[in-house]
């Protein structure tokens, strides 16, 4: 078979390109939903973990956040997905929802450490100045510290998104037909692994490259107040 024929077999015959697109759709759907959930859970966990009592000791909320983060980071994400699929949400027939929740819960733990580091990197004097004017901790956090922390958070958060998009490839374990699984199925149908697998790799790469370009743009916009 010529390279051309292999390409036709992998992408054109019986409209196989549609399968890649639907696979990519599932990949992105899970990644986007999980990403949003991850940011929400991550921010809440980070704020919980940073709470202290008046004499500077961690609160109960802070301990709960620490346990969550340790457990999630301490177990394989494939196993978390399987547990979610076969145990916690076994009765659900919405596979994408189950996978999104599982990845979102997982990502939240990592995002929380990113957010926490971003907040702690903001000069302590910013919080002190806010408090000295009579603003509460929450108000100062919201208007002063968090907006500055976001600048520190964007680069590593982008990293986390990139990881997340690629990690969704493990949903093949629970028989969701994402991009990777589609490529694998077509490979076994056509007895030719090269074209579908390289094709899927190129699609992942292009999506992630676009994300990287967008993040770069976002980062530059965020640096506006640093211009001297």
């Amino acid at each position: 078979m010529t390279l051309y024929e292999r390409f036709i077999a992998a992408f054109v015959t019986s409209d196989r390109w549609k399968l890649y697109i639907s696979g990519l759709g599932i990949t992105l759907e899970i990644a986007v939903f999980a990403g949003i959930l991850g940011i929400i859970i991550g921010t809440i966990l980070a704020l919980m973990k940073l709470t202290t009592t008046e004499d500077g000791k961690p609160t109960i909320a802070s301990h709960i956040a620490t346990i969550y983060i340790d457990v999630i980071r301490g177990t394989p994400s494939v196993l978390q997905l399987l547990i979610m699929w076969f145990i916690i949400m076994a009765s659900s027939n919405n596979g994408i929802l189950v996978a999104s929740l599982s990845f979102g819960i997982n990502s939240g733990a990592y995002v929380s450490e990113i957010v926490r580091a971003g907040i702690m990197a903001v000069d302590k004097g910013q919080m002190e100045a806010g408090r000295s004017l009579g603003l509460s901790k929450g108000t100062t956090m919201r208007y002063i510290v968090l907006p500055q922390a976001i600048k520190n958070i964007i680069p590593p958060l982008g990293n986390e998104f990139i990881t997340l998009i690629k990690e969704t490839a493990i949903v093949g374990y629970v028989s969701l037909t994402d991009l990777t699984r589609v490529a694998n199925q077509i490979a076994s149908r056509t007895y030719d692994a090269f074209m579908p697998l390289i094709g899927a790799a190129v699609i992942y790469f292009v999506i992630i490259k676009l994300l990287i370009i967008f993040l770069g743009y976002l980062e530059r916009r965020m640096r506006r107040s640093d211009i001297r």
Binding site: D123, G125, Q126, E128, A129, L133, G134, L135, Q148, S225
Partner: peptide, 21 residues
Amino acid sequence: INKVRERMGMVFQNFNLFNNL
């Protein structure tokens, strides 16, 4: 304490102006 601090201004060695504003 927030109410008390409204009535007491403080100026810091490192200025601590809000960098994002």
